[in-house]
Design a protein around this nucleic acid. Structure first.
Length: 485
RNA sequence: GGCGGGUUGGCGGAGAGGUUACGCAGCGGAUUGCAAAUCCGUGAAGACCGGUUCGAUUCCGGUACCCGCCUCCA
């Protein structure tokens, strides 16, 4: 069996990955808070851990990996949006409006992450479905002396867990010394964090032994991970920004609530993403949601297919900060286009051991891409296709618009793109005839006019001795094509 | 202030104590009505200072600069 090595944030070292149970590898990754569209930064962990999931399935077998990624649907921003809608006259109770908002956001999330070629995890628990478990866990922590209730809140007693701070390399005393936040009067210790907080008047909440309220963010992941994966699991992932306090608190809660479990053995953190060299922010105008990029709602109006976004994200190792640039996306697009052309009519063969080896070495996706380039150069297209699938590339799900074969487009997208494909076929035929005539008459004006129109419609025109070929590109506009008929 | 990460050729970006990274761009060539696409070839690096070593871009120490977290933002 292939040995996978992963950098474990817990030990700060690259370690051999040994699952607790070879026949059941368990991974938990912190998912989104569903208050709005996922932005590009949210996409990075999704793509990174999706690639790890694909590797684990390859190595341990598809049925032997359980991947859990939660939806945090308890959040003040969600509540605020629901309240805004209610005040604007939307019908329904606040609870209903909250549900409406989270359902709509989850649907967006699914659509956007699907476009990136990310497989759906085995479980996508919603925090609101596990409130009972969170309350039970909180009660257990109080009973064992690790938590206390105060003024409607329940707080975790940080000093009761000796390893607090170990994951993020912080000492409790240092943190208190440098703290900038105001300490709530009911806290025994400034570092204690909330397990349960009260809901006032119009705020949504549910009943608990401590009155109406809602769970704290950290307890959600601990409870869901425990419910779905058990006391001990193999991998826990998330963005580096979650390492402290979120993951630190998760560890403290889970370790104290389940002293016989080991919680997560391997902690993986992806580095942050920047856009054009700057931190993504609305004020700098470099803030993009995944949907913005897919739909071309960007400064240049360029549309980025999900596969291009995915490729660009995989170009940088997950533990390094990465910069999203239009240039990197262009390069990704060019390479994918070549690979699609080469592999389109080829059946997937065997996965390259070099690609598997690269991914197994702490998920070296860039190294894997280099190996894919070698396969392309060597002309081993069946292996290129199979190996690219390990990275979630060249899959049927993300195939459009790199279709070399128009028949294939018709076959795979009969409803959406059928008309466009037929148009392309007929125009291809016309252009070919015009060109043949022009070769004899030496008057190429008609050929050039049609060619320019096609390029304007986002269609790549390939003319050679072999004939004429039209390939729709990322900017393909079926409406403009129709106009040429 | 505390903790952590980074600095590689024009750009992006890896691995390895000594042998070509790779991709993009550039340049030269093939092909082409023109172009696009494709293919072949090619120059170019390791922030700075010191140490270890026969030999360091790769290990160790220091300096400078950049970035992140310490604020429920992945």
């Amino acid at each position: 069996m292939v040995t996978i090595r992963l950098t474990n944030s817990k030990t700060r070292r690259k370690e051999e990955f040994r699952p607790i149970d070879l026949s059941h590898v368990r991974m938990y990754v912190c998912g989104p808070t569903v208050y709005d569209r996922a932005h590009l930064g949210n996409a990075r962990p999704v793509v990174v851990f999706d690639t790890l999931y694909r590797l684990l399935r390859h190595v341990y077998g598809e049925g032997h990996v359980t991947y859990v990624r939660n939806f945090t649907d308890v959040d003040d921003k969600i509540n605020a949006e629901a309240l805004r809608r209610q005040k604007a006259g939307s019908p329904g109770t606040l609870e209903e409006l909250i549900h409406e908002r989270t359902e709509e956001t989850i649907a967006w999330y699914h659509a956007d992450m699907d476009a990136l070629g990310a497989l759906r995890p085995n479980h996508e628990p919603r925090a609101t479905d596990f409130i009972g478990q969170m309350i039970a866990m909180t009660q257990g922590l109080i009973a064992s002396g690790h938590a206390y209730a105060a003024e409607g809140h329940v707080l975790f007693r940080v000093r009761s867990y000796k390893d607090y701070g170990k994951l993020s390399g912080r000492s409790v005393d240092d943190m208190i010394a440098g703290a900038r936040v105001e300490v709530a009067p009911f806290k025994e210790d400034p570092m204690d964090f909330v397990l349960w907080k009260p809901s006032s008047g119009e705020e949504p909440g549910c009943g608990s032994p401590w009155g109406k309220g809602r769970p704290g963010w950290h307890i959600e992941c601990s409870a869901m991970a425990h419910e779905l994966l058990g006391e001990s699991l193999d991998i826990h992932g998330g963005g580096l920004d979650l390492q402290f306090p979120h993951h630190e608190n998760e560890i403290a809660q889970s370790a104290c609530a389940h002293p016989h479990g080991r919680f997560a053995q391997y902690w993986l953190h992806n580095e942050m993403l920047q856009v054009e060299g700057k931190k993504m922010s609305k004020s700098l105008g470099n803030f993009f949601t995944v949907r913005d990029l897919l739909d071309g709602n960007t400064p240049g109006g360029v549309k980025y297919p999900g596969e291009v976004i995915r490729f660009a994200l995989l170009k940088t190792h997950y533990r390094k900060p990465m910069d999203w640039t239009a240039e990197a996306a262009r390069e990704a697009s060019a390479e994918l286009s070549k690979w699609w052309t080469a592999t389109d009519k080829v059946s997937a063969g065997e996965e390259s051991t070099a690609v598997v080896a690269a991914l197994s070495d702490d998920l070296n996706t860039h190294g894997a891409l280099t190996e894919l380039r070698k396969l392309y150069k060597e002309g081993d297209f069946p292996s290129l296709k199979a190996s690219a699938h390990l990275l979630g590339l060249l899959t049927e799900e993300v195939r459009w618009p790199y279709t070399q074969s128009l028949q294939a487009t018709l076959h795979h997208n009969p409803n959406t793109f059928g008309r466009a494909t037929l148009s392309l076929n007929s125009i291809e035929d016309r252009l070919s005839k015009l060109r043949t005539a022009a070769m004899a008459s030496k008057d190429f004006s008609a050929v050039d006019a049609l060619k320019s129109a096609l390029i304007a419609a986002g269609v790549e025109v390939r003319m050679s001795k072999a004939g004429v070929e039209l390939v729709p590109g990322p900017d393909f506009d079926p409406a403009k094509l129709e106009a040429l008929l």
